[in-house]
Simulated assay, not measured.
Amino acid sequence: VDPLQPEQCCQLIRRGLLAGDGSRTLTPEQWRELRQVFSSGCCLPLFASLLLDEARRWRSHTAVSAERLARTVWQAIWKLFDQLERIHGSALVTSCLACLTAARSGGLSEAELEDLLSLDNRALAEVFAHHLPPLVRIPPLCWARLRADLGHRLVEREADGSAVLAWHHRQFREAAASRYLQADGGASAARVHSAMADYFMG
């Protein structure tokens, strides 16, 4: 996809904000910082879409500086990952996104993903830090909240006759692989692939 012009990126964000309740906008200072980022950095539609997601979380009193905003698609994706880890917990997000990224058949069904998360001791320890239920399994609500915050970054497609979830864009898959599968000199990838192999072999 060809890059947009800086003003086209701002128009995309303006339309995206209005698509919510119809009255959402940004302050003149926030628009100025966004224009500065687009004028000096990336103008790809995916980048503008990621900044739109960030702008939706701003309030009128939110201080925004161009220096703190992402300048590339990967920086924006990593900022999204940082936010998901703060909200949902590092271990849960790491386990979930590592499994989605490592899946060989194009993705994982929601049932498979919940099963794999329930086999991850680190994710379970994080979720049940204050209470251990009789059945130790990732609560469906934990995955539902994370799924909602990932939003349209995941798409549903068909693989081997089943509906599976997968990344909607190659850059998300590559960024997630770099962050969640290449840590520890590749040990993370080996651990995830081993757990998934054990699961699918029964």
Rank of each mutant, 00 (worst) to 15 (best):
P134L: 11
E114W: 03
R32L: 06
I87T: 09
S90W: 10
E54A: 07
S95Y: 15
P28L: 01
C10L: 12
A129W: 13
L69C: 07
R15Y: 03
R24K: 04
D184A: 12
A63L: 08
A48F: 08
L165V: 07
V37H: 03
L113P: 00
W143G: 03
E54C: 06
V155Q: 12
Q8N: 02
L154C: 09
A111Y: 01
L100N: 08
R170A: 15
Q171E: 15
H169I: 10
P133D: 04
T62C: 04
P28I: 01
A129F: 13
L26V: 10
E33H: 10
E85P: 04
H168R: 09
G161I: 12
A175E: 03
A70T: 12
W58F: 09
G22W: 00
K79V: 14
L117G: 13
R145A: 01
L50M: 05
Y199D: 15
A148I: 10
Q83V: 09
V73H: 01
C9M: 02
L154M: 08
D82H: 15
L69D: 07
I13R: 00
A177K: 11
P133S: 06
A176T: 05
G106P: 13
L113G: 00
C10S: 07
A125E: 15
W167F: 10
P28D: 00
C142Q: 11
E110P: 02
L34A: 12
W58A: 08
L141V: 15
R15Q: 03
R147K: 11
L146K: 09
V192W: 03
Q83I: 08
